Computed example of a mutant assay.
Amino acid sequence: MTDRKPPSRWTLLSLTPAVVMAVVAVTDILAGPSVGFLPLVSLGPAFAGLVGGWRRTALYGLAALVLCVALGLYDGLFDERRGYTALASVAGVTGVGVAAAVTRSRREAELASVRSIAEVAQRVLLRPVPRVAGPLRAVVSYTSAVAEARIGGDLYEVVSSPHGVRVIVGDVQGKGLAAVETAALVLGAFREAAYDEATLTGLGERLERSAARELEGEKFVTAVLAEIGDEHEVVFINYGHPAPMILRGDGTVDFPQPPSYAPPLGLAGDGSEGPPPYRLSFAPGEQLLLYTDGVTEARDEEGRFYPLGERAHLLKEPDARRALAALREDLARHAAGPPHDDAAMLLLRYHGDEDVKPSPPRG
């Protein structure tokens, strides 16, 4: 015996006009002409205009007119003005329903176009990170706080360079198109400088110059830069960003803090020294999670922040994509509602020093 799928919500909505018209017809016949249910036949095309296209609405309007004539003749209403008034009501509502359906269809087409543009912008701005970068395996998760949006103010990138695998995760101050524009600026500068600059400090200084030149007012970007080379260590530079999380091989969790905090990109004064890099061991079998504050500042119904360190065990899943997906789902359950901020997570797994050629730079 096969299971039958329940009807979809859209199917039920599309049947609503016919059901309404049938109910009105039966009620009118049972109640008789004295009650005056006949004008309610116009509810059929009215509902059709809300859930269907203009052609479907026009067909329901035609059916409603035929039904109105039939019921009017049955009730003997065309011997007086009531029958013609009911016909005029059905015709008027049908016209309004067709106009509403046309307007809604145009808006849906515009929304589809905007979504398509957003998808293209996402592919250009937040390109998929390489799954393999030197001895690392990378996987990313991004959740936008803006309804129906696919991109926002968080940014990430992984570049295999002659100087090691270089990574950035950042968070632009603000939201909307202005934040997307700033994110594009920082990512463009990072992608070029990550391959050219010999040191991570030089890379950071170049990003700061780009940000100071282009950002206006009090705009800024918090970011953390990471470099993984061949010496079983990771080098960080932190620009006012949440500390990364390192999951050690024995299951312990570290949130390494910088020796001194530096202002975000775009807020450093002229001539001021950049933040000092700091090094930590990072060996095969260990994992590095870079994230934005949309993760750790997500609150539950009681106002408690998301306990990322306590959820690190979710990353022990052998498959990196499933592990990060489990962490993302757990974050969504904790928030118990739509996100209030963008949330990006970039997971890097050190799988060893096998002979893996660096991924070529992506143009």
Results as ranks from 00 to 15, higher is better:
T2L: 14
P6I: 02
R9V: 13
W10P: 05
L12E: 09
S14N: 11
S14H: 14
L15G: 09
L15D: 06
P17K: 00
P17C: 00
P17W: 03
A18S: 15
A25L: 12
A25M: 12
P33Y: 05
L40F: 14
L43R: 03
F47G: 04
A48K: 03
A48H: 02
G49Y: 02
W54M: 02
W54G: 01
W54D: 00
L62S: 11
C68R: 08
A70P: 04
L77V: 02
E80M: 02
R82M: 08
A86K: 07
A88L: 15
S89M: 14
G92L: 09
V96W: 06
G97W: 00
R104K: 04
A112S: 13
A112Q: 12
S113C: 05
R115F: 04
I117N: 05
Q122M: 04
R131K: 11
R131A: 12
P135R: 14
V140D: 06
T143F: 00
E148V: 08
R150P: 04
V159A: 08
S160K: 05
G164Y: 01
V165Y: 01
R166N: 03
V169D: 07
G176I: 00
A179I: 00
T182W: 02
A183D: 02
A184I: 02
L187P: 03
G202I: 10
G204V: 14
L207M: 12
E208W: 10
S210L: 05
R213E: 13
L215Q: 02
E216P: 01
V221F: 10
T222G: 07
I228H: 04
D230Q: 11
H232Q: 15
F236L: 15
H241T: 13
P244K: 10
P244T: 15
V253I: 05
F255W: 15
P258K: 13
A262R: 09
P263T: 10
P264S: 12
A268D: 11
D270M: 11
G271W: 08
G271M: 07
E273M: 11
P275E: 10
S281Q: 13
A283D: 11
P284Q: 01
G285M: 07
L288G: 07
Y291T: 02
D293A: 07
G294V: 05
D300R: 10
E301R: 15
R304Q: 13
Y306H: 10
E310Y: 05
R311L: 04
L314H: 09
K316W: 07
L324I: 07
L331N: 01
L347C: 12
E354T: 15
P358K: 06
S359H: 15
R362Q: 12
G363W: 12
